[in-house]
Amino acid sequence: MSYIIEIKHITKEFKVLNRHEGLKGSLKDLFSRDYRIVRAVDDISMNIAQGEIVGYLGPNGAGKSTTIKMMTGILQPSSGEIVVNGQIPYKNRTRNAKEIGVVFGQRSQLWWSLPLVESFKLLRDIYEVPEAEYRAMLDLYRSLVDIESLLHKPVRQMSLGQRTLSDILAAFLHNPKIVFLDEPTIGLDVSMKAKIRTLIHALNREKQTTVILTTHDMGDVDALCRRIVIIDKGKMLYDNDIEHLKRFFGSYRTLKIRMDGDLQQSAEAIAQQMPEFRVSADTDWISVLVDEEQASVMAVLARLQERYRIRDMQLEEISTEAVIKKIYEEGTQ
């Protein structure tokens, strides 16, 4: 199988000046040659196939942007090999640019003073999109979102949501093989987020475009990504399916029940009865963290019902957010 993006053991190091504090320190820095090497990306390898949507996650400063910059050809890796679309991005920056689309959450790449449709026409000329394909693309856009109201509006008059939407449409316009989306839903309201996720999903499906998505919003991940890659401190922590991620931490579900009487006491009693599960109580609910490899939630519920009068119950899946948080905090070990 051939991949559209192949990354083999890339590392990126930056030389950073050791800064001193205070005014005196600043003066010292002026003449200082006291550098240290910071490894922003440390031996990362991955292969991405055509048509995948990959969620590229990591806490702030993990090295996500640096990796994306290497994939788009803005940065050259210190070592390792990276091939995008059969080419080395850094060496063929402009040629690589023709096959990719890039969206940065808060930075519009459209012409600020032009109406959207004029930006589209310019992009059509720059990327040399044949007229028929351009029209077909616009028709596709029309079928996915309401763009008529946006087409004749100058970009600078748009809301952040409209601008992001426009930027995403612009990035897909030349039917690139890969689109990089850097925090596309940052700062947007709930309905706009949903709209944008639907749009990305549809464009990926229609055009088989590979999408690399960095985000801090787990809603984006749940809605779009089947595969996720997590890095922290430049090192790869995880690269696999999103379902696998949850199993990776055991198949836990939280059973929450409500009953009469003192919840704290009941919780202690349940904990004695089922020492294999973690039981806790707050003012409204008793929570039982059930490891489904040991017993099914239904079996646990049945056992509880024999002894208590359960008035209400809830079942909580472990959220992607919780898993990711756990990985950020504890790693995969």
Partner: peptide
């Protein structure tokens, strides 16, 4: 500000 990066992704001079 970093806005300059947007110019780096177009297939032209």
């Amino acid at each position: 500000s970093g806005d300059f990066v947007k110019y780096c992704f177009r297939p032209m001079n």
